[in-house]
Amino acid sequence: MTALPPAATRRGALALVLALVAMGLAWGLSQPLSKILRSEGHAVLGIMAWQNLISAGLLWGICVLRGRMPRITRRRLWLWLFLSLSGSVLPNAASYVAVGHLPAGVVAIVIASVPLFALPMALALGNDRLSAARALGVLFGIGGVVLIALPEAALPAGSEALFIPLALLAPLLYAVEGNVIARWGMQGLDAVQALAGASTISALITWPLALGTGQGMSVAPPWDAGHVALPILAVSSALIYAGYVWLVGRAGAVFAAQISYFVTGGGVLWSMALLGERYSLWIWAALALMLSGVALVRPREPEPDVRPSEGAIP
């Protein structure tokens, strides 16, 4: 296949960066929406059960409309289970519990640790190559997070610092998921097909747990702010997360992990707007560092053949 001309390559890289920024800022809305749900007293498993069901229905509907229903195979079932556990059930459970005890902006900041986990994994698996510029880019991003957190080094009154390690479980699992996808591919599935199957398995896991533990979430009137937040969270998360999986395949796990910086910035800004949380003006300097980090951690060159890998997931 003929290589792309330099101008087209630059345009492609710019498109990936813009997609990264847009998805990250939109994804940042999930933390304040989660905080609203938890503040209204809704249980973690009940929230997750409905979120997974709505997401699965939406994504399968898209598959039908596109005429691209995936064939079910044993390897794809294993992949869907892996995506369900590493990208949905376990990280979402950790985040929902944590956001019930921490400010939404703090949880958003913690998400930015994804690259810290992703980079050594990517190097070990051979998914990406280390360079001084890429390492500096990651450090710039982490520096941005430090600037957000530093003026408010002590957590606000009523927060419980012991839940920060639990919040860190989500970025760890996202890093594992991203590197596995980048290394072994998605068994010929596109992002929507992959997430449709994963959301279905997540629903099959969370609904029995929610009902069995008495954590079901009623959707009958009277409704509260959580009932408004839930469908917005479910629909936006499904679409943005599918985009994230696509981005991993196009640009690599380490570059895609930079989305965490914009999830952080978006999460803090949305939390300020929707929840009245207040942070230092250092956030603007932090966002500048984040953008600089993304500029340094560039997407890898596109592969000549961009079809999803058929590599084995056991």
Rank of each mutant, 00 (worst) to 15 (best):
T73H: 14
A108P: 10
G61I: 06
P103W: 14
S95N: 10
V64T: 04
A118G: 08
G46Q: 02
P103R: 14
A132K: 15
L59N: 07
R76K: 15
G126Q: 09
L125R: 06
G87N: 11
P115V: 00
L136A: 15
A122Q: 05
G57A: 05
Q51A: 13
S131C: 09
S88P: 00
R68V: 00
L58E: 02
L81R: 13
L59A: 07
G100V: 00
Q51R: 15
V89L: 15
A43T: 00
W78G: 13
L123A: 11
L85N: 08
S84L: 07
A118D: 03
S39A: 14
L125N: 03
F117R: 10
G57S: 02
L130Q: 14
A93M: 10
L65Q: 06
S39R: 08
M69C: 09
L116A: 07
R134S: 12
S84C: 14
N52P: 00
F82V: 09
L116D: 01
G67N: 02
A98P: 01
R134M: 11
L85T: 05
Q51G: 05
A122C: 07
P70D: 08
E40Q: 08
P70Q: 11
W60C: 04
W50M: 02
P120Q: 10
Y96H: 05
V99F: 02
A108N: 13
F82T: 09
V97G: 07
F82S: 13
R71G: 11
V114R: 14
A133R: 15
R129Q: 14
V99E: 01
A98T: 01
A112W: 13
L79N: 12
G46M: 07
C63D: 07
R68L: 05
V114T: 14
S131N: 12
L102D: 03
R71Y: 06
V99R: 00
A108H: 11
I47E: 09
V107M: 11
I72G: 09
L123T: 03
V99D: 02
A56V: 00
N92G: 04
Q51N: 07
M69A: 10
L136D: 01
R75W: 08
P70A: 13
S39L: 09
A98G: 06
N52D: 03
V107L: 12
L119S: 03
A108K: 13
G100M: 03
A93P: 00
A94T: 01
L123Y: 04
P120G: 12
G100N: 08
W78D: 07
G87E: 09
V89K: 15
V64I: 09
S131D: 06
R68W: 04
H101I: 00
L119D: 00
A122R: 06
C63P: 06
F117E: 00
P120R: 12
H42G: 01
P103L: 13
L119Y: 02
L45H: 03
L81F: 14
T73K: 14
G41H: 03
C63L: 12
A135L: 15
A56E: 00
R74H: 10
V89T: 12
G67Q: 06
I109L: 15
L130R: 15
R75S: 11
M69E: 03
N127L: 08
W50Y: 03
R71S: 13
P115L: 12
H101S: 09
A94Y: 06
G87Y: 11
L136E: 04
I109Q: 11
L102P: 02
